[in-house]
Amino acid sequence: MPPVPSSTPVAAGPPLALVDLPSDSLAPTRSAGVAPGRLASRALAPLLLLGAWQLASATGFVAREVLPPPTDVAAAYGELISTGELQEALPVSLARSLVGLALGGGTGLVLGLCAGLWRRGEELFDAPLQMLRTVPFIAMIPLFIIWFGIGEGAKIALIYAATIFPVYLNTYAGVRGVDPKLIEAARVFDLAPRGIALRVILPTALPSILVGLRYSAGVALLALVAAEQINARSGIGYILINANVNQRADIIIAGIILYALLGILIDIIMRAVERLALPWRGKLVLA
Rank of each mutant, 00 (worst) to 15 (best):
S25G: 09
G151V: 10
F165D: 00
R248I: 10
E79L: 09
S208D: 10
L143K: 12
T163H: 04
N242T: 08
L286V: 07
Y172G: 09
R214M: 08
S31H: 07
V34G: 02
Y160R: 13
D24S: 13
A186S: 12
P46F: 04
Q130K: 09
R38N: 02
Y238I: 00
T204W: 03
V211W: 06
L240W: 00
G78E: 10
L21R: 00
A220W: 00
L261T: 06
L55Q: 09
N242Y: 04
L284A: 08
A74W: 13
A173C: 04
G106Q: 07
L261N: 06
P68K: 11
A154I: 05
L258M: 12
A161W: 07
I201M: 12
Y168D: 01
L124K: 07
A287K: 10
I196P: 14
I253R: 03
G153L: 03
I252A: 01
Y168V: 06
R281M: 12
A185H: 06
R64W: 07
Q229R: 15
A35W: 11
E274R: 12
R187V: 03
L224H: 03
A173G: 07
V167T: 14
L265I: 06
A115H: 04
A43Q: 01
L202M: 13
L80C: 08
Y77E: 11
R64L: 15
I196E: 15
S57M: 02
L86V: 09
G33T: 07
P180H: 02
I239V: 04
A162I: 12
A17R: 10
A157H: 03
G174S: 03
G60W: 06
L286C: 01
V285R: 12
V245E: 11
P28A: 15
A287S: 13
R281E: 13
A139N: 03
S57I: 06
A45E: 01
P22E: 05
L86M: 10
G237S: 09
L80E: 15
A52H: 03
G282T: 09
L206I: 01
S6M: 14
S41M: 10
D267S: 14
I209H: 08
G149S: 06
A227G: 12
L240D: 01
G105W: 08
L222G: 08
I145R: 09
K155N: 11
G33Q: 13
V285E: 14
L261H: 08
I183E: 13
I196A: 08
D20M: 12
G195L: 04
A12P: 03
I150M: 14
A43Y: 00
R42L: 12
I164H: 01
A43I: 10
K181F: 02
R176Q: 12
S6A: 13
A243S: 08
P70F: 02
W280N: 09
N170P: 10
F148V: 11
A45M: 13
C114I: 15
